[in-house]
């Protein structure tokens, strides 16, 4: 549980990171032992820190919002369980709402039930977790959206004490759900996939051709030297992008819609994930620091 002094210390650390010191908080490539040490230092559960890394990335504003919102004495492990519950059951955005198959729904419900029992102190055995995950994996459906949504529940089917990254794993499957919905809505199929791949190659070639012709023009009047090389590389990248943009503008295609929608879905997913976590924190209390150490 996060104590008042630890919360203050962590907010100080975030303030330093916002200043000249730069990023000193855990990130996606931080080794588990370092995440565990960071968690211990600030009284946070490693599963909570893993989730914060996954949905907060290096957005210091979000880190600050989360830590400021945590009431002293907050049980951050419980928050992770509640976030898992939110992502599974939220009527509007929850993964369960995307599933019609009763077996898959029951499989996801069982994972959430195990998480809630574990959070309340019950000892859930490895075989119970494994069996719950297997039930979901074996409940086959041909619907890609349902499969991806069920994978989200399966991703959370681990003991958070020994596998603290499990809740953060739900993000992969959540992304898969967004992508599957986009493909369904666009009627995406193998034919469109092949056409999109061909188009990507053409776009890439157009970018290269434009940049190469610009580079050839520049070389004729170029001075030698490393500084010139760096500047040339930057210009080459810039001209490549211009070639790409010109080609896309001159040759519009609905095939590009998939990538546009995927990029937008990423942003939406992280926005929702952050809102979901802040909502769980908001429900714990008013977030004002207390003087007593819980």
């Amino acid at each position: 549980m996060i104590a008042f002094t630890a919360k203050k210390a962590l907010l100080d650390r975030i303030a330093k990171a916002e200043g000249e010191e730069g990023w000193t908080l855990p990130a996606f490539s931080t080794p588990p032992a370092d995440i565990a040490a960071f968690s211990l230092e600030y009284g946070l559960h490693p599963a909570f820190v893993n989730l914060l890394i996954a949905i907060g990335g290096i957005d210091l504003g979000f880190w600050r919002q989360v830590i400021e919102g945590l009431p002293s004495g907050a049980d951050s492990r419980l928050l992770v369980t509640r976030w898992i519950g939110w992502l599974w059951t939220d009527p509007e955005h929850g993964l369960r709402s995307k599933i019609a198959d009763e077996k898959l729904k029951a499989g996801g419900d069982l994972i959430l039930d195990l998480q809630e029992r574990a959070a309340s102190g019950e000892d859930i055995s490895k075989s119970q977790w494994r069996s719950a995950r297997s039930a979901l994996a074996n409940a086959a459906t041909s619907d890609e959206v349902e499969t991806a949504a069920a994978a989200g529940a399966a991703a959370a089917g681990w003991d958070l004490e020994s596998v603290p990254g499990a809740a953060a794993d739900m993000i992969y499957a959540w992304k898969g759900t967004f992508f599957a919905e986009i493909d369904r809505d666009l009627g995406w199929n193998d034919e469109k996939e092949a056409a999109a791949n061909q188009r990507r190659e053409k776009i890439h070639s157009a970018g290269l051709a434009y940049a190469d012709s610009d580079a050839a023009r520049s070389e004729a009047s170029a001075a030698e030297g490393a500084a010139k090389d760096e500047a040339s590389m930057a210009r080459y990248r810039e001209q490549y992008q211009k070639g790409v943009q010109d080609y896309v503008a001159a040759n519009p295609s609905d095939l590009d819609r998939r990538d546009e929608l995927r990029n937008a879905s990423y942003l939406e997913m992280y926005r929702l994930g952050r809102e979901g976590l802040l909502r769980q924190i908001g429900q714990l209390g008013d977030g004002r620091p207390e003087s007593a150490v819980a």
Partner: peptide
């Protein structure tokens, strides 16, 4: 690419 533990676990099982 990146994926969940459970996806690899299902394949391992």
């Amino acid at each position: 690419g990146s994926m969940s533990r459970s996806k690899l676990a299902a394949a391992l099982e």
